[in-house]
Amino acid sequence: MLRVLAALTPGIAAYAWFFGPGVLIQLGLASLTALLAEALMLKLRDRPIWRSVGDGSALVTAWLIALSFPSTGPWWLVVVATLAAILVAKHLYGGLGQNPFNPAMVGFALMIVAYPLMMSRWPGAGAAMDIGQAGALIFGSHSVDTVTMATPLDTLRTAMHGVETKLSVETFLQSRPDLHAAWKWIAAGYLAGGLWLLQQRIISWHMPTAFLVTLIALAGVSSAIDPSAFNGPLFELISGGAMLAAFFIVTDPVSGCTTPRGKLIFATGVALITWIIRHFGGYPDGIAFAVLLMNVAAPLIDMYTQPKVFGLKDDQGSRHD
């Protein structure tokens, strides 16, 4: 778990570089909440506290929440999401290893359903913000419209399906090159961390590969058919939390599938549903919903993708004649 946290740091560094130190405050808030909630639940359930808190699983959840939330959102957004993740999604099911849903995504989905507006206020990139300003935004008043804006996905959605139908991806990207670059760097940070995790054998290749390949394929085909309505693969990969999801969210072993075929199906499903929700649904990004939906299906997929047991494989039979 601690290595997962380490793998997140390049992405976080890029995030903080481009969008200001707000994300660090959010990370701290989420971590503190998560650890307290975890300790509380362990205490209530009379379980050894330090060992379980020390395994870092609560911190991973907290960091994933903080990273998928707008970095200048109000403080209670992250706190409530983390509480929901740790208390409901994790400990009601018995704690680490037993939760059927990805706790971070439960927190995210809950907040985006409850506070869609708050969740889509992202800071503009390059807006040189010091820690004081960020703190004022997070803990202070709500008059933040001047510095915040929607994510590229959100803007694009509005653009594509709204009034400005003629705005193409290219023109959008050209209009905000800074934003584009920022997201590219952050995605690269997550990618680097993810590759390190792969190299460390913390995660297997199945899920990230299936997820990314499916997303690229869908984006490639759809944008080739109708470039004005669909995003190209690159945009699809760097926007939203696609990279974060590919290496850190989809790969959660507890709530995902465990069989090799199951992993491929799971990640493919997440990518497919994500893409559908991004383009046809009512929410700007569908990763959280896609992950949760596939979490629901995971036990069934696992059940039907059991590898053949030794001696029961199809390619051999009784040889005796």
């Binding site: 849903f101 929700i277 649904g281 929410y283 949760l292 629901v296």
Partner: peptide
């Protein structure tokens, strides 16, 4: 309830 939350992602489809 949590599954319900997940299905809300389809809203608008």
């Amino acid at each position: 309830g949590l599954i319900s939350l997940a299905f809300m992602g389809f809203t608008g489809l």
